[in-house]
Design a protein around this nucleic acid. Sequence first.
DNA 1: TTCCTTGCAAATCGTTTGCATAATG
DNA 2: CATTATGCAAACGATTTGCAAGGAA
Lengths: 130, 130
Amino acid sequence: MILKHSKQRDAIKGFLMTRKDHPTADVVYSHVRKEFPNISLGTVYRNLTLLSDIGEILRIRVGDGIDHFDATVEPHYHFVCTKCNGVSDLNLDSLNQINEFADASFDGHIAGHVTYFYGTCPDCTKKTLS
Amino acid sequence: MILKHSKQRDAIKGFLMTRKDHPTADVVYSHVRKEFPNISLGTVYRNLTLLSDIGEILRIRVGDGIDHFDATVEPHYHFVCTKCNGVSDLNLDSLNQINEFADASFDGHIAGHVTYFYGTCPDCTKKTLS
DNA sequence: TTCCTTGCAAATCGTTTGCATAATG
DNA sequence: CATTATGCAAACGATTTGCAAGGAA
């Protein structure tokens, strides 16, 4: 399958690169629509799936049942605010040691882990205090 | 909201307690149906949601888009096999230290984390070797 | 008798897909 | 020209919900 260039795909990836809050497909759709009023949700989904398949973006699942997307593909951890439901990046070293830790008492083979943290984000923490 | 007793709910919880493989709602449905042939999927979902709301069971999301349920409510970690897609428990001490680790470089407040490990389960590991 | 719970079916939500047409190389 | 990408709408799978009837306290 040889990729052909597409303005819609560029716009989708371009939009994702401007955001660090890991938008959902719906958010991507409503923003890209400003530039391509006729773009369909299906095209957005198709391209998000394609881009994550080829490793240009990340599909993130943080337990809310909705896929989020991230243009930062380097491994990093995510944080979910339990008040505003926002998703953000965490500046945190790899925790890969926990793989060996888990492997020690496990009969199969552990290849990796998925971790996200939850709590109150900086903004919601400030609002709670005031 | 005062709970009333229900045989269907008992059967659902009872079935979950016999299993350590974290069945999906569909699996619960097909098994409880042996005892209650007329039970509906809606009732199964309603009770699974109710039971997890009151903390009698756990709703587990391991990235496959399908909810799994677990009658063991004590904190523990899960493992997902990337070959057979099975979900199992891991015998692993709490990793709560990673919360403070993450909190150190974070401006909000971290209340906890969700982690699951993936790889090949004992059974699939054996099959691969043979 | 109150009101929670059920079965059934329809509805919802996020996501995927079939198809004819448009755009790319 | 060959083939990928699009828009549209229909289909999908998991889950939720409205409603009238059944069951528990």
